[in-house]
Amino acid sequence: MEHIWALWGGFVLDFLIGDPQDWWHPVRSIGWLIGALEKQLRRIFPRTKQGELAAGAALVFFTAGISTGVAALILWAAGRIHPLLRFLVMCVMCGQLLAARSLEKESGKVRLFLDQGDTEGARQAVSMIVGRDTKRLTEEGIAKAAVETVAENASDGVIAPLLWMLVLGPLGGFFYKAVNTMDSMVGYKNDRYLYFGRAAAYTDDAVNWIPARLTAFFFVLAAWMLPGMDGKEAWRIWRRDRRCHKSPNSAQPEAACAGALGVQLAGDAWYFGVLHKKPVIGDAKRPVVAEDIRRASRLMYTASASALAAGTAAAVFLAFL
């Protein structure tokens, strides 16, 4: 149960202080590792389809193995000094692997600019948290992009690592973050990463398959709990639109969020000057507004706290069997 209480400590730490920009963060180190390994593996493996597929598989193996191994070594060293130090290090690790506060903070900047009528400032702020082109976005488009980011990253950045840590402690969190960071860096279908990034993309789909669906479930639960949210619609839209995305996971939380808020998300988007046609998620009962960004963050926090509480209850129950 030690890792469960450490996760609670990390959850509180993330809620209180988030990720100060001038502090060291493990994801930056994982990103550096991925870049260094990519450079070396491209030198070793041939520039053929099979060679790049093999190099990409090696990237997954070494990145996940080294990231998890270094975390295990740090915890072992801390435990050799004192068990309390090990527990405190576990709390800090868990807090760093959760991104709820950062997600709320960065999306909140978009909302503040929109509230002030500064559309250009809002475009700049939202460009820091989305991958699409933002120059063409209207005020509603900016708000919609921010809400979608909160919904999708509630899984990738909060509930998925939380669930991995509930089961495997901080080491599970480091494994997950290694895989998720690889996907964000090399999991693209372009000339450079079509084959090299395939193993990372497929592994990320696999490790997020259950968390994405549980995130949707906890979104629906949170929608029933929060005033002004619609739990019934969250369930209906999730059932109807959960597969409206090329990714097997992304539409799961977005659909539940769209239903809970009573808005329409997704749809066509511009990337690198090219319009990509995408299906919509949810019903356009009303326009998406700046306040929906705050409401999505409330949904995220309630869902993640519910997931942590449910996981803790399950762990306590199993401990007493």
Rank of each mutant, 00 (worst) to 15 (best):
H3M: 05
A6E: 15
G10A: 08
V12L: 15
F15G: 12
I17T: 11
I17L: 11
P20A: 07
W23R: 15
V27F: 08
R28C: 00
S29Q: 10
I30C: 03
L37C: 11
L41C: 02
L41H: 00
P46H: 00
R47S: 07
K49Y: 13
K49S: 09
G51N: 12
A54P: 04
L59F: 00
T63W: 04
G65H: 03
L73T: 10
L75E: 02
R80N: 10
V92A: 14
Q96Y: 13
R101P: 09
E106F: 01
E106T: 03
R111C: 15
L114R: 01
T119D: 02
A125Q: 05
I129P: 12
T134C: 08
E148N: 13
E148A: 11
A151L: 10
A151G: 13
E152A: 09
E152N: 06
E152G: 11
V158I: 05
I159N: 07
V167R: 00
P170M: 01
L171A: 01
L171F: 03
F174P: 04
A178D: 06
S184I: 08
K189E: 14
D191T: 14
D191I: 02
F196Y: 12
F196G: 09
A199L: 00
D205V: 06
P211M: 01
F217R: 03
F218D: 10
L221A: 14
A222L: 01
A223Q: 07
M225S: 10
A234H: 02
I237V: 15
W238K: 07
R239P: 03
R239L: 08
R239T: 05
R240D: 15
D241N: 04
R242L: 06
R242Q: 14
N249K: 00
V263T: 06
Q264D: 07
D268A: 05
G273N: 02
P279T: 05
V280N: 15
R286E: 11
P287I: 04
V288M: 06
E291W: 15
S297Q: 12
L299I: 13
M300G: 07
Y301D: 08
T302M: 06
A307Q: 07
A313Q: 07
A314I: 06
V316T: 11
